[in-house]
């Protein structure tokens, strides 16, 4: 129930995002979801792609600081209050969320959230026990 995510260190300078995404394009990987957060000097670009290892290797070769980490992805109903349910479950289990970002697809009525937590396995277990939908790599990419 784990999905690979790529984190990329991006300096805040003109054209840098274009260069980095061009490098990802060169690896032939397709971006499925992304998030970027920034401070005044630098940002961290986080992406989920269909070929995570290829993309990471190409980025590394280009001298970019990049890491591959495991995250979890959950599906939630498109109704008011639906997102609060998994949040409450994690909170009750004492699991902190480091960051998250959401996306939707054309193939499903649901909304999806990528979650980065300290302990993926425990988080996945408590969420599934309470009936929350978790995606594995295959399930995730079949949505696209």
């Amino acid at each position: 129930m784990i999905i690979k995510q790529i984190s990329i260190f991006v300096e805040n300078k003109k054209g840098r995002l274009a260069e980095i995404t061009e490098t990802i394009a060169k690896s032939g990987a397709n971006i499925r979801a992304l998030s970027i957060a920034d401070t005044t000097d630098f940002g961290i670009l986080r992406i989920i792609v269909d070929k995570a290892d290829d993309a990471a290797a190409t980025l590394k070769e280009a001298g970019i600081t990049v890491s591959v980490t495991n995250v979890i992805a959950i599906g939630i109903d498109d109704t008011p209050g639906a997102f609060s349910v998994p949040m409450r479950i994690l909170s009750d289990a004492g699991i902190d969320v480091e960051y998250m970002y959401a996306f939707i697809t054309r193939k499903s009525e649901k909304a999806y959230v990528i979650l980065r937590v300290a302990d993926n396995d425990t988080a996945a277990k408590v969420l599934m026990d309470k009936g929350v939908e978790l995606l594995d790599e295959e399930g995730f990419h079949s949505l696209m």
């Binding site: 600081t65 980490t69 480091e98």
Partner: peptide, 14 residues
């Protein structure tokens, strides 16, 4: 120059 990619998971570490 930042070379340690393991710090990318947490802003607080950077």
């Amino acid at each position: 120059e930042l070379i340690d990619a393991s710090l990318l998971e947490k802003y607080s570490e950077l």
